[in-house]
């Protein structure tokens, strides 16, 4: 079936099987920032924005996305560069596999929650698992990014 949607502001018509999930669709179309880390909607590395909301692309049927706006880090270059300036300074990146999904969740946090506390930040990104960093450097970086760009 054909699905009309927008990926990173560019309208596209995409061929999809009924059972195709957005993660597979995006990777097949070379949006390789979107990673696969688990089979069970439980790691967060496949997070993209759908109409601005962070969403696990592994668990959304592509066929349900008619007229939706999909955003991956490829479409948020300016904001990612601002975020990375702090993230890199804190040495929070390590293996990087979770970073695109985390970055999109953080961008959404910035756009939806005013003056979040550290606990609000942690709660918002709780499902973006990271096995490398120990997390506290991430939260420091996010706080600085929010303070300096909000």
């Amino acid at each position: 079936m054909k699905v009309n949607l927008t990926i990173n502001k560019r309208p596209r018509t995409i061929d999809a099987e009924p059972g195709d999930y957005l993660l597979d669709t995006l990777r097949r179309h070379n949006f390789l920032s979107v990673k696969r880390g688990c089979d069970a909607a439980s790691c967060g590395v496949c997070t993209v924005l759908i109409d601005g909301k962070p969403t696990l692309s592994c668990s959304v049927l592509t066929a349900r996305l008619e007229n939706k706006e999909i955003t991956t880090v490829e479409g948020e270059r300016d904001e990612i560069e601002k975020f990375y300036a702090h993230f890199g300074d804190e040495g929070a990146d390590q293996c990087g596999f979770c970073n695109p999904g985390l970055a999109l969740t953080v961008i959404s946090l910035k756009r939806t929650i005013q003056n979040p506390s550290d606990d609000d930040i942690r709660e918002y990104i709780v499902a973006n698992l990271c096995r490398c960093s120990g997390y506290v450097a991430q939260v420091r970086a996010i706080r600085r990014y929010l303070e300096e760009t909000s």
Partner: peptide, 21 residues
């Protein structure tokens, strides 16, 4: 000294880097 990693930004920007990419 404090230095950002040489590769972190490109990876966060989604540049193909891992085996499956």
């Amino acid at each position: 000294q404090k230095h950002q990693s040489v590769d972190g930004k490109g990876i966060m920007l989604g540049r193909p880097a891992y085996t499956d990419d």
